[in-house]
Amino acid sequence: MESLTQRAKPVDRRPMNWLEKIYLWEIFKGMSITLKHFFKKKVTIQYPEQTRPFSPVFRGLHILNRDEEGRERCTACGLCAVACPAEAITMEAAERLPGEEDLYREEKYAARYEINMLRCIFCGLCEEACPKDAIYLSETFAPANYSRKSFIYAKDDLLIPDPVTNPEEYAKAKGLIDKKKNLKS
């Protein structure tokens, strides 16, 4: 049979010679190998202090985007919910009332927007489906928790920080989105 890769090593099935039969020399060889590893650089990443760098296409927790004036971009069109193969997204639409123009960009907005992170498979189809640039997958993942309920993320958990009141946090979150956009274009 032809091998799939060139990396396959044939197994040496020759009978053992005398030196191999008494094992002792082979044991010393093995021990020198382990000693070499003793002084090798350790591969461990000290997790809470150090983190592994994410790939730019990493798909983590969702973010609901705002525009430059801090208005929510989502219009509750429901395309993300339709696109979602895991049916993790639930939303309820509401009409924008007069005086709320600085809160919502369009006349319709999502009054309730929930993603069940236990159902979500982080495929990113919602991101693809969104016509309004409103939902993005970020580089964080859901932290562990004790209850199932806490994994249903509501709008408060998902919304990006307001650029007007909290510009620093916004810039940080925004940077990730921009990075992603550049990658796609």
């Binding site: 000693l35 590893h37 003793f38 350790k42």
Partner: peptide, 10 residues
């Protein structure tokens, strides 16, 4: 510690 170091851990 020795186990860790030999297995490239800490």
């Amino acid at each position: 510690k020795v186990a860790g170091f030999i297995q490239d851990r800490r």
